[in-house]
Simulated scan of single mutants.
Amino acid sequence: MKNILILFVMCFVLTGCFSKQIEKQPVHVDGVEEVLPLDEKNVSLDKVIEALKKEGMGLSIVEEQHFILNSVKSSNFSINESDENEEGAYPETISIYIYDSEQARKEGLDDFNIQKERYNMQIPSIYEQKNVLLLYWHHENLNNSHNAKYSKQMETAMNKL
């Protein structure tokens, strides 16, 4: 009887210890590998990039770092287009933040709102979906941001996630 009780307790403890483990999936972006938790509710960076490309957007990774929001660094991309090679033309960019949860994403946005008040800066269009926060740094002014060049594609891509 004592052995059965010990066996039962050991099974209970082992099951509890391993129940919180989460599988990881590698994410590859232009040769850079990032490992994120695998969860049906969460969206990976690969899925975001795939959705944006399906909307006709060409993306090139940018090394420049914008903000660290809620302890998460962004993956930054310029939006490729042939007319951006003109002298004096600046490409529009996006910053993609992938969080562990929707709540962490909301906290990241709160962090951004605090930081933008500290600096005099261009205000990006903000897109949120599940655990993804996307900042679209475009050339339109704040009052006309819904008419930015890729606004409709961004909105469509994010809604499909």
Rank of each mutant, 00 (worst) to 15 (best):
K73P: 13
V72S: 04
R118K: 15
N70D: 05
E23N: 14
E84N: 15
S145A: 11
K116V: 09
L134H: 01
S82P: 09
E102I: 04
A89N: 13
S75V: 04
Y90C: 08
N147C: 02
D30K: 06
S145N: 07
S82H: 08
N70C: 04
V48M: 02
A51I: 00
S60E: 11
L52E: 02
D30H: 05
I123P: 04
E33L: 10
I98Q: 05
P124C: 07
E107Y: 12
E64F: 13
R118C: 09
K152N: 03
D83S: 14
E107N: 13
Y99T: 04
A104W: 05
V48S: 00
V27A: 06
T93L: 04
V35Y: 14
L109I: 01
M57C: 01
T93M: 09
H28A: 12
S74P: 09
L69D: 06
D110W: 05
N80R: 12
Q21N: 14
I98A: 06
P91Q: 12
T93A: 09
S145M: 10
G88S: 13
T93Y: 03
V72M: 05
S145W: 02
P26V: 10
N80W: 04
E102T: 07
G31K: 08
K116Y: 02
V132E: 03
Y150A: 00
Y150L: 00
Q25H: 11
Y150K: 01
N42R: 07
R105Q: 07
E40V: 08
F67D: 11
S101P: 06
L52K: 01
L134D: 01
E81Y: 11
G58P: 04
E34T: 15
S145V: 05
K54Q: 14
E23G: 13
K53C: 04
H146Q: 12
V32T: 12
